[in-house]
């Protein structure tokens, strides 16, 4: 365990203390909460076993390796090397790649575009310069409809922003419609 400022090694007496303890090198007050993983060695990588007997189930990707379990998505037999554990599921590399591509494995997503926030901003911001709403209102509606099913934020689950953006865009379009109708009729 090292100091985050100077990199000096911290001895055990500084760990899990109930008060600030100075770093032995830079004297900056530190509080360090450690957990059992710190004291464990590196994780043992399970090597794939070779097929021992004739007729024994083998890995779909490595026919000469012994299968240890099936993929929970496609059912293919996997050796210990091909088994990838994610969210408590055992998957094969192909299902993992496919899940990442389709966005069904949310734990692999490192970045998401927030279309709901984009639609709401498109609906709200032009209200400061209202003539722009003639263009932005249909644009808002397009974004809201086009990306209605697109995965949103990992942490926000509701569609309230999308609904609000659509409602505002529709109100703006109705307003423009009434305005044009009044101008042409007069």
């Amino acid at each position: 365990m090292t100091c985050t400022k100077c990199g000096a090694v911290l001895n055990e007496s500084l760990l899990n203390q109930s008060a600030w303890s100075p770093c032995p090198s830079c004297s900056l007050p530190l509080r360090v909460e450690v957990f059992p993983t710190l004291f464990r060695g590196p994780a043992q990588v399970q090597a794939a076993q070779s097929v021992v007997t004739e007729g024994e189930a083998s890995c779909f990707y490595h026919p000469n390796k012994k299968a240890v379990l099936p993929c929970e998505t496609c059912g293919r037999f996997l050796c210990a090397l091909c088994d990838v554990e994610l969210n408590g599921q055992h998957l094969c590399p192909a299902c993992l790649a496919s899940g990442r591509k389709k966005g069904t494995l949310s734990n692999l997503d490192n970045r998401r575009v927030l279309y709901d926030s984009l639609a709401l901003t498109l609906a709200l911001l032009p209200l400061l310069l209202w003539p722009f709403t003639l263009i932005t209102a249909p644009a808002t509606l397009f974004v809201a409809i086009r990306y209605w099913r697109a995965p949103g934020s990992v942490v926000h689950r509701t569609k309230i922003r999308m609904i609000l953006a659509m409602f505002l865009a529709l109100a703006q379009m109705v307003g423009w419609g009434i305005g044009f109708w009044a101008i042409f009729n007069s």
């Binding site: 365990m1 985050t4 400022k5 760990l15 600030w20 900056l28 007050p29 530190l30 509080r31 360090v32 909460e33 450690v34 957990f35 993983t37 710190l38």
Partner: peptide, 8 residues
Amino acid sequence: IQAIVMRK
């Protein structure tokens, strides 16, 4: 997670 370190 091995540790959480706070520096004042």
